[in-house]
């Protein structure tokens, strides 16, 4: 199969963020970056699908400044065959603006399957995948926690609040990947060496108009928690009293 995987370079979330002096972005100093968690699952799904078939080609696409090339190389070190950087000075917050650029690139690729993460963990828009699918006019299933492809058709499972659903669809199609589907592999040394020689094309991003813009970013107010009321079962009466009289939830 010809598979495309769209990956975003995002900050590692295991950190305490600082807001940059402009007040509308996160201070990037000292942050570590990698492909988003869900994008990693999407890459792994693509690799496993093609390993099962024993043939095919996987392309990773990332939109952003030149630093995204590092993320694309990482995908290639995992086994992706080639990469495309859609060059833009910065990644807009507006998912629709991003979807325009990705759709413009994907339209002519002849892909059987186009994979996205369910969400980019920084913007948390959860919209770029289905928007791109609409712009391409392709069938789309979002947040797949299971995916099977056979004879030009796909079957996916999606988790719902207190349930799940099964959907079927024809290829070519767009699928966004939830967690629980596959654990991304670590690149092998051989993979890392091979990735250096794989093709990475750079093209200008044809971004759509940004109509969703960041006015302000701030850190959430600290919870004033940290009150330990006692130890063991002896603390239970005091807890019940506080839940009744102070929190008024009982």
């Amino acid at each position: 199969m010809k598979i495309a995987v769209c990956i975003k370079r995002v900050a590692d979330m295991e950190t305490r963020f600082k807001i940059a002096p402009d007040g509308t972005s996160v201070d990037a100093t000292g942050l570590k970056f990698d492909m988003g968690d869900f994008d990693g699952y999407a890459v792994e799904v693509a690799l496993q699908l093609n390993e099962k078939e024993g043939k095919g080609e996987i392309t990773a696409i990332s939109l952003g400044p030149s630093v995204v090339q590092e993320t694309l190389r990482k995908a290639m070190s995992m086994g992706v065959d080639r990469a495309v950087q859609l060059e833009a000075p910065a990644v807009p917050f507006d998912g629709m603006a991003i979807a325009h650029a990705l759709a413009a690139e994907l339209a002519t690729g002849g892909y059987d399957l186009i994979l996205f993460g369910r969400m980019a963990v920084d913007s948390a828009n959860q919209s770029v995948g289905p928007m791109t699918a609409e712009l391409l006019g392709l069938p789309c299933v979002t947040a797949a926690s299971k995916l099977e492809i056979a004879n030009g058709r796909g079957t996916a499972r999606r988790e719902l609040e207190g349930g799940a659903e099964i959907l079927e669809f024809p290829l070519p199609a767009v699928v966004t990947i939830d967690e629980g589907i596959a654990r991304p592999r670590y690149p092998s040394l051989k993979g890392i060496m091979a990735a250096k020689k794989k093709p990475l094309e750079v093209k200008p991003a044809q971004l759509g108009e940004a109509r969703l813009t960041v006015q302000r970013m701030e850190l959430p107010p600290e919870r004033t928690g940290g009150r330990i009321i006692g130890e063991g079962t002896a603390a239970v009466p005091e807890l019940v009293r506080l839940l009744q009289t102070e929190a008024k939830v009982l």
Binding site: A11, M13, R16, F17, I19, V26, F93, V121, D122, S123, A124, R211, L212, T213, V214, Q215, R216, M217, E218, L219, P220
Partner: peptide, 17 residues
């Protein structure tokens, strides 16, 4: 208002159109 970065950053967004 939209929580981003796993809830560690709160964004205020303007949506036009």
């Amino acid at each position: 208002r939209h929580p981003a970065y796993t809830g560690k950053v709160i964004t205020t967004l303007a949506l036009s159109g």
